[in-house]
């Protein structure tokens, strides 16, 4: 693809104060989920389940990268980064991030996200749905550490858990 129409930049978010003087910068979680799960539906019909999951992961990864660069770029200390990320995710209503385990030497982490924007409260589906979250976390960590990250959701509200749990580890370079 030589010319792009939809390449992301923060300008696309627009001037919300100008555009929504009465409704403001927030919307119902229901609407967010409506968009997410209708996207998922249509993409699956068009591209299949695996490709849909992959696209959601990639979109989340891009969002994680952009989010990091916009809000956390100067941070180099891991604990400060986590604290700042926790606060931002909470303030924006994205989820309650908690750290379960950190192995800084190996770059491995176990994180949980409660009250997750994408899945908390969904019916039990017997599969994990937070592909976008996986990508989002991978994008954040990759930009903080400078290494590619593999992130996997191992527990999810949709599989009966009360909190979503993610493992993250650097992708070994060949």
């Amino acid at each position: 693809m030589t010319e792009r129409k939809y390449q992301f930049h923060w300008g696309l978010i627009g001037d919300i104060a100008l555009g929504r003087p009465n409704l403001g910068p927030t919307t119902a979680v229901e609407v967010y989920r409506l968009m997410e799960y209708t996207f998922r539906d249509v993409l699956e019909q068009e591209l299949g389940t695996a490709q849909t999951d992959r696209l959601f992961f990639q979109a989340g990864e891009l969002a994680g990268k952009e989010f990091f660069q916009r809000y956390f770029q100067p941070l180099t200390d891991f604990n400060l980064f986590v604290k700042s990320l926790q606060q931002t995710l909470k303030e924006m209503g994205i989820g309650v991030l908690r750290v379960e385990k950190v192995d800084l030497d190996r770059g491995r982490l176990v994180l949980t996200v409660s009250e997750d924007l994408d899945c908390s409260g969904l019916p039990e589906l017997n599969y994990e749905v937070c592909k976008y979250d996986e990508g989002f976390i991978a994008g954040l960590l990759a930009n903080f550490t400078g290494r590619q990250y593999r992130v996997k959701e191992i527990d999810c509200w949709c599989t009966g858990d009360r909190t979503c749990r993610f493992t993250a580890e650097p992708v070994e370079e060949a």
């Binding site: 604990n79 908690r98 750290v99 379960e100 385990k101 950190v102 176990v110 949980t112 409660s114 039990e124 017997n126 527990d155 509200w157 599989t159 009966g160 858990d161 009360r162 909190t163 749990r165």
Partner: peptide
Amino acid sequence: LKGYLAGTLKALQANLRHLTWQTQM
């Protein structure tokens, strides 16, 4: 295991693990 009861216990475990990490910090 999956399911509500397992999920609840795992949430408790997650809270305790996070508490441990916070204490270490």
